[in-house]
């Protein structure tokens, strides 16, 4: 039995026994090589679950949908390692209770889907350590290094050009599991800190605010990047912020679910290089 069939039957079992109220997985998409999220509430619906190398989305985004988990019931979700990282962050930030989530873990390597052992987040403690030392995808790293070599004025020009494309559709925000605020700061208009129109200043404001709000919280799943309709390489910004946080505080976001959020916590030996 392949992993897809195994997870399908397990999902059906969980649903029929009432163990979980919902299974969030992947279903057929609009084209042969695209998958869209599938929400199975009955054993029959779970028959439509698909698991193959095209299942790349980070489904934790759907866990933070308003009110989904307030009844205390369990939800099962299909997660890749980056999704598990996201889940760790969401648990640390009190958005999800660990005991409410059943994980169908899988990894995609060389177009092969392999299962990940364990169903509860506590089963994935070792994965965090592994991800911490893993090298980022070469495409991201090479591009990030190219940008770093540009110098600050070169980079500024680069991002000015990239952000000039932004149409403020907020697809990045919608795709990101960390953007769970009921009201985003960009929607605050009394006072209006972030300008809403799509000119360079407003675009800079929005993208920088988002970068800062993701500092030490990004699981590097790339959802924002994939969601962007004008192809702004958002994951490069988040990669850089992640690197800064790792260098300054030796902190890798989502390594475990009992991490203290880095910017909210304080250690006696934190670097104070900013104090003159």
């Amino acid at each position: 039995m392949g992993i897809q069939e195994q997870y399908r039957s397990e999902a059906a079992e969980l649903l029929s026994s009432g163990e979980v109220k919902l299974v969030i997985g992947f279903g057929a998409g609009s084209t042969a090589d695209r998958r869209r999220p599938l929400f199975a509430r009955t054993p029959e619906e779970s028959e439509k679950l698909v698991l193959d190398q095209n299942c790349i989305a980070n489904l934790t985004t759907y866990l933070v949908a308003g009110g989904l988990l307030t009844d205390g019931k369990k939800v099962a979700v299909f997660l890749k390692p980056d999704g598990i990282r996201s889940l760790n962050i969401l648990i640390a930030e009190s958005q999800v209770k660990a005991e409410q989530v059943v994980i169908f873990g899988f990894a995609i390597e060389n177009n092969e889907v392999t299962p990940l052992e364990g169903r509860s987040i506590s089963d994935f403690a070792k994965l965090g350590e592994k991800l911490r030392t893993a090298t980022p995808p070469p495409s991201v790293q090479e591009e990030a290094e190219r940008l770093e070599a540009m110098g600050s004025s070169g980079r500024f020009e680069y991002w000015k050009e990239q952000f000039s494309k932004c149409i403020k559709c907020y697809a990045c925000r919608q795709a990101c599991p960390m953007c769970y605020c009921r009201r985003c700061i960009v929607d605050v208009n009394q006072p209006q800190w972030v300008s809403t129109s799509s000119h360079t200043l407003g675009n800079f404001e929005w993208n920088l605010v988002r970068a800062f709000h993701l500092a030490g919280r990004c699981a590097a799943c790339g959802a924002c990047d994939r969601a962007c309709p004008v192809n702004i390489p958002l994951r490069l910004i988040n990669y850089r912020m992640g690197k800064e946080v790792k260098e300054a505080f030796d902190y890798f976001a989502g390594e475990s679910s009992d991490q203290n959020p880095v910017l909210a916590s304080f250690r006696q030996d934190d670097p104070e290089t900013f104090i003159l």
Binding site: E93, S94, Q95, C181, R182, L263, A264, S265, F266
Partner: peptide
Amino acid sequence: DATCAGCFGCVMA
């Protein structure tokens, strides 16, 4: 209350 996302970073900070 209406807009608090309940991340409780403030509690720690």
